[in-house]
Nucleic acid binder design. Structure first.
Lengths: 220, 220
DNA sequence: CAGACAGTATACCGTTCGGTATACTGTCTT
DNA sequence: AAGACAGTATACCGAACGGTATACTGTCTG
């Protein structure tokens, strides 16, 4: 019996036997490493990093602690890897777009975020909720560089648009905050109103509507 | 020696002696109950609810665990009391205003939030960061009713304005989210750029500017 | 003065925390 | 065949967790 076969059998037996364990995002085709990442994200997303114990993650993934520590070294290392995976994919979508004028760039930006959220809503909501975690919590330390990069990119869009929008005089910061605030707040609250099982979906029409609200205010 | 004299002496000695303990928001004129609340808020604000232990709060407040449990019954009870205190004060400011047309109502709303944040920025930032905490975390359960009330009030403003803004058809929800997102995101990020010791301050001019951005978009 | 009572401290509870020492297994390389 | 090596499990660590049993203190009320 191969190692991977063993692992799968064990996971299946575990999922069927202990019964309190719920393996949601994972399936038996995953290796242990991927299953740990998926289960950890799922638990962090729904209960928060601090409120989830290593033990709990191991139980959900059907492995034991040394296995987790073999791959990630520490709980913080596991968090870092989840963040890296999530943001790498988000940035990939983000960097590929952004040509054209302000409105087009803002649409691409908004679209990248909502598209990513649609495909990986647990990852997105977890990553973005860390945006607002306390400054002395290690989760903030981990997410801060990524956040700064997103924020910087938003500021950039407004800076490049000073021709169309006039001298910015620091307003690009406020615009960037407002824009990100609008998107994040909308997506985070959207998660509330959706059935917990499915992904969230932001239709084209809503994207346009959000952008319009940001560009022209509430007087349509 | 009276009980309160004893308490003050002990607190002073503790603050001076153990030296790692930092009593920030409290002073010796407070009773134990108030000192516990102040120290707990301070710690929750900077490290997060889950990451702070009862022991740590007691040490900061210069008391022992049974004292804390005498007043609040549990860690969750302590959180509830902090939330109640904070939001009661915020709602008081919020309910007193709100007459006039949309723009005036929105200004009052924004002003109430920023004024409260200016006077109690740790409380405000803590309360609002819970806005984005995971849904299955007990902190979200505790803050949810308060959040719903704020959100409902924002929606109300837009609903009352359907005369001026035309048929809302559900857009009032999106407007409310955008408005709250703008304010919260701005204030939360503002905390980043301020010296950690002092309070944050939102001058009249900035309030107007934020409102203008929301009402009319970015094309000034 | 006697009892009730809020407030507080000492000392302790069982549980869970993040993390690890050790040893075994299978696979891959030489 | 021999050794290296990644991966995994059993069993354990000290520390911290949230919470409490008990007893003492001072104050207030009859």
């Amino acid at each position: 019996m191969s190692r991977s076969e063993r692992a799968e059998t064990r996971a299946a037996h575990h999922a069927g036997g202990v019964s309190l364990t719920i393996i949601i995002e994972s399936n038996n085709n995953m290796g242990n490493r991927e299953r740990i990442l998926a289960c950890a994200l799922d638990l962090f997303y729904s209960k928060g990093y601090d409120a989830v114990g290593i033990q709990e993650i191991c139980q959900a993934a059907g492995i034991t602690k040394p296995t987790l520590y073999h791959y990630f070294g520490s709980k913080y290392g596991l968090l870092e890897m989840i963040l890296k995976n999530g943001f790498d994919e988000l940035f990939q979508t983000l960097e590929d777009r952004g040509g054209g004028d302000v409105e087009a760039a803002l649409y691409d930006f908004l679209s990248a975020l909502t598209d990513y959220a649609g495909a990986n809503y647990k990852a997105y909501l977890f990553l973005m909720s860390l945006y607002y975690s306390p400054r002395e919590n290690e989760t903030y330390r981990a997410v801060q560089p990524y956040i700064a990069r997103i924020h910087g990119r938003a500021v950039q869009i407004f800076e490049r648009a000073s021709g169309k929008l006039g001298n910015m005089n620091g307003r690009q910061e406020q615009f960037a905050m407002g824009f990100l605030g609008l998107i994040n707040h909308y997506l985070l609250m959207l998660g509330d109103r959706q059935p917990p099982g499915g992904g969230i979906c932001v239709p084209e029409e809503t994207k346009r509507s959000l952008l319009h609200q940001f560009l022209h205010g509430i007087y349509s």
